[in-house]
Design a protein around this nucleic acid. Structure first.
Length: 155
DNA sequence: GCCAACGTTGGC
DNA sequence: GCCAACGTTGGC
């Protein structure tokens, strides 16, 4: 079994790295995009490493590291009429949306801002820089290791 | 707040 | 199955 690497986006005023550091573990729910759903359902495995990215904030940046601790299962929020993630078209016996659980690993001492990432030739192929809207995206081993080596300095 | 990119919906 | 209209994401 090979370990894979991912980048998960989150808006820090909704749920940021400090929330995850405090909670230790979180359900990564509310993903309502089919491409992202397919990745969660088919490709994300326990033990995979996750770069935690803050979007829609200043500055946008990779801010920490997490690990997958539970692989894809039906997102309970899709069945909860009170949830903003409720989906009336999703059936219990044929769930449309999937979530995973992640655990906090580290908060980077030096977050790698999007502006900085764009300047690094080693990262020019990163999905983040190609297809910015995807909220769950693959990261290559080389990119992952480069990012940890370059910016991180775990705190 | 604006706008580009792109995903989704629905009429035909 | 195409495509126009519309909605959402997310950087700036």
């Amino acid at each position: 079994m090979t370990m894979s690497y991912w980048l998960f986006k989150s808006e820090p005023n909704e749920y940021g790295i400090d929330h995850l550091a405090k909670d230790k573990k979180a359900r990564w729910d509310g993903i309502r995009n089919y491409q992202a759903r397919n990745i969660l359902r088919d490709d994300v495995s326990v033990g995979d490493q996750v770069l935690f990215y803050h979007s829609s904030c200043k500055p946008t940046a990779i801010v920490g590291l997490a690990e997958v601790v539970a692989e894809g299962y039906p997102d309970p929020a899709q069945f909860n009429a009170d949830s903003p993630y409720f989906d009336a078209k999703s059936k219990i016996d044929a769930p449309r949306w999937v979530c995973v659980d992640i655990a906090f690993q580290a908060k980077f001492k030096n977050p790698l801002t999007l502006a900085a990432l764009k300047k690094m030739p080693e990262l020019s192929e990163m999905v983040l820089l190609q297809q910015s809207r995807l909220s769950i995206q693959p990261v290559t081993k080389a990119e992952f290791e480069f990012i940890l080596r370059t910016g991180a300095g775990k705190s």
